[in-house]
């Protein structure tokens, strides 16, 4: 059969529509915007507009590419340092979420079947309140004359208010709080499918429950751990709102640097370049983890 014939056959079988819809979605809302951002990152900022990449002289097009933005990113330590600090906070958030989320998901998966939907609903419940409101609520809890400090002072646990706001502590709390459900849900999905007979067999053969957990449950839930970690890590790197509201001057993340390029410096091409580098930074760990998962599925 020729390729063309096969192609037309797939058309009739409706495959094209099934694949075409998500492909069109991807092209329109991911690939094209990304290309536009890359294009802007290679142009220059004029007073109140972005320079044109292709200019026409005597009917001939001249292509002007400007790579200086990328050079600048790697020549100024600010950007590299901020990328590193963004990845650091995203990693810390991911690890804490995993530490809290795993036992959470584990007990949810082991809970009686009829109350599991309720437990799931409880995880979702906070999302009925606006994200901004929930972050702002942390502010009222953590400030020096806030709920926690006032309570501790009235109980005479502390004499002076604790400094919990606008530093890495408040930032980490806000990030972990916001992203925890994204860790729990894939882990729960995975753990609830765990075949309990493996554990019974292990117990029959004399393995302690603790050892069985590390030898059986954890390796089998690897796919859930990877999925949850990606769901937390990727958005956490570029997070802007939480560091703005709960972070302090010492917790600079790349989202704020992007804001400064775009708004304070009024330099759209530079802002675009910073964003492109950030996407590249996220794609690398994602590709590694994705490959690890693909191997897992083959096995």
């Amino acid at each position: 059969m020729t390729k063309l014939a096969r192609f037309s056959q797939s058309l009739t079988s409706g495959k094209l529509i099934v694949i075409g819809v998500p492909m069109a979605w991807f092209l329109l809302l991911v690939a094209i915007p990304l290309l536009i951002i890359m294009k802007i990152s290679l142009s220059e900022m004029e007073a109140t507009s972005v320079s044109k990449m292709i200019s026409w002289t005597n009917g001939l097009p001249t292509l002007k590419l400007n790579f200086s933005n990328y050079q600048f990113i790697f020549s100024d330590a600010l950007y590299v340092k901020t990328y590193i600090s963004s990845i650091k906070y995203a990693l810390i958030t991911t690890l804490i979420c995993l530490g809290i989320g795993y036992p959470f998901a584990y007990f949810m998966a082991r809970a009686p079947k009829h109350i599991q939907p309720t437990l799931l609903m409880l995880i979702m419940l906070p999302f009925w309140t606006s994200f901004l409101l929930r972050i702002y609520a942390w502010k009222t809890l953590l400030v020096s004359n806030g709920v926690i400090n006032n309570l501790l002072m009235s109980l005479h646990v502390i004499n002076a208010p604790l400094d919990m706001m606008n530093n890495s502590f408040s930032l980490t709390i806000g990030m972990v709080y916001s992203y925890l459900p994204f860790m729990i849900l894939p882990l729960y999905a995975n753990l609830s499918k765990l075949d309990l007979r493996y554990l019974e067999a292990a117990a029959d053969l004399g393995t302690s429950p603790f050892k069985a957990f590390w030898l059986i449950t954890v390796p089998l839930s690897k796919a859930g751990i990877i999925a949850g970690s990606m769901l937390v890590f990727i958005p956490a790197v570029g997070e802007y709102v939480i560091p703005e509201l709960l972070g302090g001057p010492s917790t600079l993340m790349i989202g704020r640097v992007l804001w400064d390029e775009f708004f304070s410096n009024n330099d759209w091409p530079m802002a675009a370049a910073v964003a492109v580098v950030m996407i590249a930074l996220i794609l690398v760990p994602m590709a590694i983890l994705n490959r690890a998962e693909a191997k897992l599925e083959e096995a």
């Binding site: 849900l185 894939p186 999905a189 796919a223 859930g224």
Partner: peptide, 26 residues
């Protein structure tokens, strides 16, 4: 890809989609 692994139940995927949807909306 990591969302489409064979271990995850469809209901969870729906919930995740919802979660993202709601955050996006806010």
């Amino acid at each position: 890809r990591f969302l489409s692994n064979k271990h995850s139940a469809p209901t969870i995927k729906l919930m995740l989609a919802l979660l993202f949807g709601i955050t996006g909306l806010t």
